[in-house]
Design a protein around this nucleic acid. Sequence first.
DNA 1: AGCCAGGCTCTCG
DNA 2: CGAGAGCATGGC
Length: 311
Amino acid sequence: MRRRTIPLPDPFDFHLTVGHQTHFRGKVGSDLYADGTYYRALRRGNDVLSAAATPLGDGRLEIRLLSGDSDADLAFVTEAMANLLALDIDLSGFYALLSADPVLGDAVGHLRGLRPPRAESVFEALVVAIIGQQISGNVALVIREGLVETYGSPIDADGYMLQAFPRPERLLDAGTDALRAHKLSGRKVEYIQDTAERTLAGELDASRFLEMDNEEVIAELIKVRGIGRWTAEWMLMRALGRTDVLPAGDLALRRVVSDLYFGGETINEAQLAAFGTERWSPYRGLATTYLFSYLRKQRVDAGGTAPAAPG
DNA sequence: AGCCAGGCTCTCG
DNA sequence: CGAGAGCATGGC
């Protein structure tokens, strides 16, 4: 088996980061957290690969290529896993912010080392976000699991059966009725189909967005039917790794900020946007990730039978 | 049982 | 313009 060891940045908390990625449920979509290892099914062109990442405890991360057969595949999955785990991000400025913002520091200071994990592609991030529009996190996870199980590309990973995220062609071939049978609303089926078609046309390639600032990307994305500001912002964080994005329209985020800073008084999107800009720039996206992790932990601690939320 | 859930579009006034 | 209805479904 081919393997490679890479240095880990400091701070890095593997359990928090992979747990966040998998909603502390073990398997979610194409991600699996088991045996102290992060497993993931990946696409490299038309090939499907599987990989594992395990911290060695000495400041290094071991990457194993589980399915795939070349040094090029190993190099590919090594870079992909490092990207999924956001190893490139410098968290020091955000931690300085936590010291300057005691409310945020008290709420999420214990999450030190959490990195904002990513999706594999713009398409995956957009489809997952569209599924999650308006509905509860649990429902969104159920729908996402169904799509990945049915239309993903299966591959073995150390005895676990994983599924690479469905390709746009596959979701288009499935047809409207089949997608609706997966508990998607008729509108969301249209949104996903439009997103898939534009992905195949090359309109949504990550490479197109790399040189654009956040607002330019948002302006481009909301041309797609079904993609509004919230969905575009989610993609910026989840696929492009932008760390200064604030999805101020997000209901759960508005509520947690309301609870922490405004004594429970409800705030609207504009109020949250202004507050976040003043208080958290240029780390608004990191604050968002940490607050969602804080919410998830609250739900887990509350002892729900299904602790989770998407994202 | 009903109402809400990490939005978005379309329709009206 | 801003406000409101409709969407689908699992969970409380």
